[in-house]
Simulated scan of single mutants.
Amino acid sequence: MSAHNPPARLNRGLLTLLGLILFAAGGLTLATHFGWPGLFDPASTVVPGRGRPPTWALYIVAAVAVLLGLLCLRWLTAQLIRKPRRGIWRLESDPDRGRTELATTTAVEPFADEIETYPGVRAAEASLTGAQHNATLTVVIHTEQQASLPAIRHRVRTEALPRLRQALDLQALPTAVEFRFTGKPTSTVQ
């Protein structure tokens, strides 16, 4: 999740750029091989004075390149959808009398809504991951530039978080809070 990995956007951007460069190089190589006009001479050698490698070696190189490309594509798609899994908690003490299911996204909506009412907070996102006995809460709070972060953190710790723990019937809930500034800083004109 990006809340714990701030360089992820740069990582994905650089990987995408590298992928586009490699894609263009592969296209250029194919265009040269098939002799499309305006490109390099397909009869010229890359390394002068060397003989052509055996055909089987070219097939192996091509297969390895395709395999590496697919593995890189799989890794890149995993980076794009990298969010912790949210689940459904089953809250039941006696399954014969029925069961209660609680989506973790539903459980944290009121918590995030409460944080959004705090002064200086523009938006809040919360995700609850893991099973009920070892759940983890991640909170991303978007604030104005001049917002008091210690005051917001204090209210989250002393007001919102105890209410959430009580509602979920949890003794402890490990929590990671990330602040993100939104908008431009306001300046006063004198």
Rank of each mutant, 00 (worst) to 15 (best):
F111I: 02
D41W: 03
H133F: 11
L170Y: 07
H4V: 03
A43P: 07
P110E: 10
T175L: 06
T29E: 01
T29D: 04
R82M: 13
E144V: 12
T186P: 03
P95C: 01
D41Y: 05
E144Y: 04
S44T: 14
R97L: 03
R99N: 11
T77C: 10
W36A: 14
P42V: 10
V139N: 05
A172N: 14
G87D: 09
E114L: 07
I81T: 15
G130N: 02
E92Q: 14
H33M: 15
S127L: 09
T106M: 06
D41P: 09
R82H: 13
Q190C: 13
G49S: 03
T45H: 14
A25W: 07
A57G: 04
T136P: 09
A151C: 00
T16S: 12
K184R: 14
A63S: 11
M1E: 12
A25Q: 01
S127C: 10
G130T: 04
P185C: 07
A25K: 03
S44D: 12
L14H: 01
T117Y: 09
Q132W: 12
K184S: 15
M1R: 11
L168T: 04
L149E: 09
A107P: 05
R82I: 00
T117P: 03
Q171I: 12
F23T: 05
V139D: 05
T105S: 14
W36C: 01
L15K: 12
R165N: 10
E92D: 15
A63F: 04
A31V: 06
Y118F: 15
L173S: 05
P54D: 15
A78G: 14
T32W: 03
P119L: 07
A112T: 10
V121R: 02
T77Q: 10
L102Y: 02
P84M: 00
L173V: 07
V121M: 03
R82Q: 15
Q79C: 04
R157F: 05
R86P: 01
L76S: 06
L80D: 13
G87P: 09
F23P: 02
A103K: 10
P6V: 03
R122Q: 14
G38N: 04
D113F: 04
G130R: 06
A107Q: 07
F34H: 10
T138C: 06
D96L: 15
I141T: 14
I88G: 08
T188V: 12
L71V: 12
L28K: 02
C72L: 15
V139H: 11
L30C: 01
L91E: 01
R153S: 14
R12L: 11
R180L: 07
L20Q: 05
H133M: 12
K83A: 10
R97P: 00
V140S: 14
G120C: 07
A167G: 13
L71T: 11
A62F: 13
R153D: 12
L102N: 05
T29C: 13
L164A: 06
W36H: 09
S127V: 03
A151E: 06
L68R: 13
H154K: 12
V61S: 11
R180A: 10
L17N: 02
T104R: 04
A147Q: 00
S187N: 09
E114T: 09
T182H: 07
R86V: 04
L173A: 05
